[in-house]
């Protein structure tokens, strides 16, 4: 498929810190490309370089095979940007905000007013059109921010953590809107730390950690790669036994298994060959563990992420919530 954006060896350094370390990827026209990673992985810095909000230390950016590295300003008319925090004018109404954003792209009054009404309708915000932005709920603010980034009909939409910090219903609505936009031909670059969101929306994904892309590919390929492993989760009752000691014993008794704690009460066993669960269950029982359930797990993108980055998702979500 035709590449709309291509990035080659993109690097961003802040004095001694390398925030983005020579990353390369391309985005095809009409796809939803996901950028996944923990806090401070380099997701927002990468977006900022692509949209012209951060200077590029090294590397090249191509838009439709044209080098735009040093002329991103000219490319800004073709993109819509939704930052991780809503950035519209608190004192303006929803309608005024959309009209103002459209005017920044040189759209004439009659056209921008029609566009504003159209997008308020699409995003189900018509009833709040004349209310000030500051009176909007978080979900409404997010939707209007997305609408504001679309009023000039961009070719590519950059979404930085679009559903972080908003309610479930609004998140679902936003995901559905992103899907609809993509079905209408919009190319979407999405950063998120919600793996399930990326799994549902994206065709291709890049895992980024500490400024480097660890793996890039189709969502299905990630899952197929990890499907070659067998995963069993063993759920047990709370126990005072030291988990590190237990884990060590497990590793010694079953060296062919990759053992880890998924959470307080669940042990995760991974092996490339079939796992016979009965010796494991017997071993745990003999160590005073009361087992509630042992089940074979179908690998998910989350498993692929954890395997590739070594970062547990709970840790990543907690980090984000702290932020």
């Amino acid at each position: 498929m035709e590449s709309i954006i291509e990035v080659k060896n993109l690097t961003k350094k802040y004095e001694s810190l390398t925030a983005v370390d020579s990353i390369s990827f391309s985005i095809s026209k009409g796809e939803i490309f996901g950028f996944l990673g923990p806090n401070a992985a380099g997701k927002t810095t990468t977006i900022n370089m692509l949209i012209g909000m951060a200077k590029i230390t090294d590397g090249k950016i191509f838009y439709k095979n044209n080098d735009i590295t040093n002329k991103i300003k000219k490319f800004q008319g073709c993109i819509g940007v939704v930052p991780d925090e809503s950035n519209l004018y608190e004192e303006l109404t929803g309608f005024e905000n959309l009209c103002f954003c459209a005017s920044l792209y040189g759209i004439k009054r009659s056209k921008r007013e029609a566009k504003a009404k159209q997008f308020l309708e699409i995003f189900q915000l018509s009833d709040a059109a004349d209310k000030r932005f500051k009176s909007y709920s978080k979900g409404m603010k997010r939707k209007l921010t997305i609408a504001a980034s679309l009023v000039h009909d961009p070719e590519i939409l950059f979404l930085d953590e679009p559903t972080t910090g908003i309610d479930v219903a609004s998140s679902r609505q936003i995901r559905s809107l992103i899907k609809n936009l993509n079905e209408d031909g919009m190319t979407v670059f999405l950063t998120t730390h919600y793996i399930e969101e990326a799994e549902r929306l994206c065709e291709r994904i890049a895992f980024i950690n500490k400024g480097r892309i660890i793996k890039i590919g189709k969502v299905q390929n990630f899952i197929e790669d990890i499907s070659q492993s067998n995963i069993i989760e063993v759920l047990f009752e709370s126990t005072p036994i030291d988990k590190n000691v237990l884990l060590e014993k497990l590793k010694q008794s079953f060296p062919e298994l990759e053992c880890s704690f998924k959470n307080e009460n669940t042990i995760k066993l991974i092996s490339t060959s079939k796992i016979d669960v009965s010796p494991v269950v017997s071993f745990l029982s003999s160590n005073g563990i009361y087992i509630l359930e042992a089940k074979l797990i179908r690998p998910t993108l989350e498993d692929a992420f954890v395997k590739l980055t070594g970062i547990e998702l709970d840790v990543m979500k907690k980090e984000k919530e702290k932020k």
Binding site: I51, G52, M53, K73, K74, Q76, G77, V81, P83, E85, N87, L88, Y89, E90, C101, L104, Y105, A148
Partner: peptide, 14 residues
Amino acid sequence: RGRSFDRLLLAPIS
């Protein structure tokens, strides 16, 4: 501070 100035920096104006 409200980041609305970023909207202006992102617009295709010099």
